[in-house]
Structure formats: structure tokens, C-alpha cells
């Protein structure tokens, strides 16, 4: 199981990784405006990796940080669980979550479900996203972004080793590690120079959204009931409602039958 390490402290925001991805995957350019401090503004079906320049207010003034938006290749991908046509599949050997746009029907379930807001639909091409260059991995190469990164901010290797490197580096610079537990763990581990929320990264829960091979109803309920006061209230409410409906309908009927004698 492989992983990609992104070290924001070494990243200089040069966009070599962003353009290498376009080159290797033969992707088209999107329409944009403005300057290059994070263009295109979000991932699209043609842009699978975007480098962002983020200003963070710190004690001695604003500081510029770099971060990438890209598919995190979750260990338990939600997109794979919800795709009805199996157009997104995780390769359990390498860890890459791979798209098959020729099967995509455009239901946008993955677009809605992803906790990192990664997959994006494009008319005519389907839903596409980073596939960890699975074709390069099969040929014994590293992903295109990793092989071109000039500062060594991107590295590739066994997930356990990458996590070790990330934690060491984070301790060195007083940074934050992102991706080890998020959404149950991902195959993209980031060392960040500022807290993830400040860099615009989503902060999903630190447990998998897809626990079992069923639709995760128990997870749903647990997550939901955490919003109500105390657990178990949610389930009781549903049961109560169900009973109310049935009771109401039957009561109505009973009344009439009595009338009819």
C-alpha cells in the first residue's frame, strides 16, 4: 500500500506537479481569470491537482503558506462505496483510487459524498480525478507529480514509511500532519506549516465513513445522533414516527368500520 508525502514546508508553489499531471494524463486546460495564486480555483474533471497560495494571519503579521488540493486516496473511499456503476474503484494493492470515466453515468453521488470535495464531473468526459498515476505505478515509475517535484516536497513510498517521515518532519518544523486518520486514513499524507482549517483543507472525522460493506447505516445514525442530545434519541424518534403513522391510519380505519357496524 503506497502513499504520497506532501511537505508544505519544502513546497515553493512552483506548479511543476500541477502541469506534470496535465501532461501525463493529457488533460485540457480550464477557463480561469486572475493571477496564479491558486488557479483553477477548484478541482475540475480536467484539473486533478491544484497548488494554492494561502495567507494566514499570524502573530507577527500575515504569512504565506502553500498547500495542494488533490485526491487523498482514502483507505476506505466513500466515493467507491456510493458509486452505483463502479466507475470509481480502489486498487487494494497500490492504494490508488482509480476512475473509469467510460462507466460513469454522471449521477454525481461521488461528488456529493467525498469529504474532501474531490471528484468533479465534466460533460462528455465523466467524473475524473487523480488516479495516483496507476499506469505509471504498473510500469515501475513514480507518479508524474512526484517525479518532477524540484524541491523534494513530494515523495512516494510505502505508507508506513511515509507516515514515519511525515511525523519526523512535522516534529522538526513544529507543523501538522494531515491524512493519517482523516476519514479513516488516506494515502496522501501532508506535512503542513499551519493548521489544516487555516489552509482551507476540510476536516472530516478521524474515522472511516464506510465501516462495513453495507451502506454504513450504523455510522450514519451515530453521526446523526451526535447532533441530538444523547444517543439513541434518533432511532427512537424514527420508531415513534413509524408507529404514529401506522397508528393514525389504523385508527382512522377503525373509526369508520365501527360506524359501518
Amino acid at each position: 500500500m503506497y502513499a504520497i508525502l506532501y511537505d508544505s514546508s519544502l513546497c515553493i508553489g512552483c506548479r511543476a506537479c500541477q502541469v506534470a499531471c496535465k501532461r501525463w494524463n493529457g488533460l485540457e486546460a480550464d477557463e480561469t481569470e486572475g493571477m496564479d495564486f491558486g488557479n483553477p480555483q477548484s478541482l475540475t474533471s480536467n484539473t486533478w491537482n491544484v497548488v494554492k497560495y494561502v495567507w494566514v494571519e499570524e502573530e507577527n503579521g500575515p504569512k504565506l503558506h502553500f498547500v495542494v488540493n488533490r485526491c487523498m486516496h482514502c483507505l476506505e473511499p466513500v466515493c467507491e462505496a456510493v458509486c452505483p456503476v463502479r466507475a470509481i474503484v480502489k486498487d487494494r494493492e497500490t492504494g490508488a483510487v482509480v476512475t473509469h470515466p467510460e462507466r460513469c453515468v454522471g449521477c454525481l453521488a461521488c461528488v456529493e459524498a467525498c469529504p474532501f470535495s474531490v471528484p468533479k464531473f465534466g460533460r462528455g468526459v465523466g467524473t475524473r480525478k487523480c488516479i495516483m498515476c496507476i499506469d505509471r505505478l504498473r510500469l515501475g515509475l513514480e507518479p508524474a507529480c512526484v517525479s518532477t517535484c524540484p524541491t523534494g516536497a513530494l515523495k512516494f513510498g510505502e505508507r508506513s514509511e511515509i507516515i514515519k517521515m511525515a511525523e519526523e518532519r512535522a516534529k522538526e518544523i513544529g507543523g501538522y500532519v494531515y491524512g493519517v486518520h482523516e476519514a479513516g486514513g488516506t494515502s496522501v499524507i501532508m506535512v503542513l506549516t499551519a493548521p489544516p482549517e487555516k489552509l482551507g483543507l476540510p476536516t472530516p472525522m478521524k474515522a472511516p465513513y464506510v465501516k462495513s460493506k453495507v451502506s454504513g447505516a450504523d455510522t450514519l445514525l451515530k453521526e446523526a445522533t451526535s447532533m441530538l442530545t444523547g444517543s439513541g434519541v434518533g432511532e427512537s424518534l424514527v420508531l415513534a414516527l413509524g408507529a404514529a403513522i401506522v397508528g393514525g391510519v389504523i385508527a382512522r380505519r377503525m373509526k369508520i368500520s365501527r360506524k359501518e357496524g
Partner: peptide, 11 residues
């Protein structure tokens, strides 16, 4: 293809 994934609610 829509029937392919038993874990998906859309299926």
C-alpha cells in the same frame, strides 16, 4: 451498469 455496486444506495 447501475446495478453493479451492492454497497451503494443509488444501486
Amino acid at each position: 451498469f447501475m446495478y453493479s455496486n451492492p454497497t451503494s444506495m443509488i444501486t
